[in-house]
């Protein structure tokens, strides 16, 4: 599957944290042709394994990009058939107003997120951002029919078509972190024509948005020698954040307490050798990514982090450059090609 087509289908697919099963067939269809083995585990993590050509026992690399998306969950169906919801992950309620959604009940229903209209708000209310409790979902059904079709606990996703903008940019929901999952495909495809000594575990992890949960258990289960997490980072313009990344200038290589310096050095060296553009991301403490969880699985797993620059994170119009996705995959593949026993043994500090 072509990488952009994969990202389009991922972005338009449905996989709220804990409910990622709707994406599994698609991920399998895309990744399995480039992997000897493909499996899913108890938490729904999808693992594509490419065995390396090194001697047994081979070293192993885990590549982790999370497949889950932030979403909503129905908490209540009111006496007129309107739905109330809670967050799964972190939306700013202000970006939810007037969004079209899909309510995943017994069947999928179109819905609209509404709030009190402006002419009914008091001046005081108008000055305040709406809270999630002020919002509701209209599914256009009377209460009886709503209750037959929708239950408390059903998930709700934003309804947003993947949109191609000018200049190779793409916009849509949940590019955080499906852009990372698309980079896994790009990486695996390139690994077909690269010799790699290490076993490669390409993992589309689950429940990242609610606490790095899939990465926690899959890192325990796979027990790799080292790992690279692939996630997104904030990109400008207009951010007023020193060090914010830019679209189209390549993946950002992270540095910080969570990142093994030798792995970062290798990523930088590989990028320089292959002429892959990169940017830098400084994450002093918690990276807020799967890297944070993988790093302390079992007796400790050396971890690096690559980030794909993204504008408007956690909205339904997250925007990224396809070239960054491709370069991320390329860098990962070339990196995987350099992993061997000597590298792994060098990761333990004196």
């Amino acid at each position: 599957m072509e990488t952009k087509e994969f990202l389009r289908r991922l972005s338009e697919g449905v996989g709220v944290s804990g409910y990622e099963h709707g994406l599994h067939d698609l991920i399998r269809e895309a990744l399995a042709p480039y992997a000897g083995e493909f499996s899913t585990d108890a938490l729904g993590n999808c693992v594509a394994v490419r065995r390396g050509c090194g001697e047994e026992p081979r070293v192993s690399v885990m590549l982790a990009a999370h497949q889950d998306e932030i979403g909503l969950m129905v908490t209540k169906i009111d006496e007129r058939g309107f739905l109330r919801v809670a967050q799964v992950g972190g939306f700013d309620p202000r970006v939810l107003v007037a969004q079209e959604v899909v309510v995943h009940g017994r069947r999928s229903l179109p819905g609209i997120i509404g709030m009190k209209p402006p002419h009914i708000l008091t001046d005081e209310e108008r000055k305040k951002a709406p809270k999630l409790e002020d919002l509701f979902i209209d599914i256009g059904l009377p209460a009886g029919e709503a209750r037959e079709t929708v239950q408390v606990g059903d998930v709700v996703t934003l309804n947003r078509a993947f949109t191609e903008l000018h200049g190779g940019l793409v916009a849509g929901k949940s590019l955080d972190d499906r852009a990372g999952v698309a980079a896994l495909l790009e990486c695996l495809r390139r690994l077909q024509s690269l010799r790699h000594a290490a076993d490669i575990y390409a993992v589309a992890t689950t429940q990242e948005e609610v606490g790095l949960r899939g990465a926690t258990t899959s890192a325990y289960g796979l027990h790799p020698d080292l790992a690279v997490a692939i996630d997104v980072c904030h990109a400008g313009p207009g951010l007023d954040e020193p060090g914010a990344s830019e679209l189209g200038k390549g993946p950002a290589v992270a540095v910080g307490a969570n990142i093994h310096p030798k792995l970062r050095d290798l990523l930088l060296a590989v990028a320089a050798d292959c002429g892959i553009p990169i940017q830098h991301e400084v994450s002093p403490g918690a990276t807020g990514t799967d890297a944070w969880a993988i790093n302390i699985a079992r007796a400790g797993i050396p971890t690096a982090l690559l980030s794909i620059p993204l504008r408007y994170m956690h909205t339904s119009v997250e925007t990224a450059a396809m070239s960054d996705v491709v370069q991320t995959g390329r860098l990962l593949a070339e990196f995987c090609g350099r992993v061997d026993r000597a590298l792994v043994e060098g990761l333990r500090w004196n």
Binding site: F91, V95, H166, H234, L239, R311, Y312, M313, H314, V317
Partner: peptide
């Protein structure tokens, strides 16, 4: 011509 009205990420 397609375009998006984005907002600063909630994290920021």
């Amino acid at each position: 011509v397609p375009g998006v009205i984005g907002t600063k990420a909630v994290h920021l």
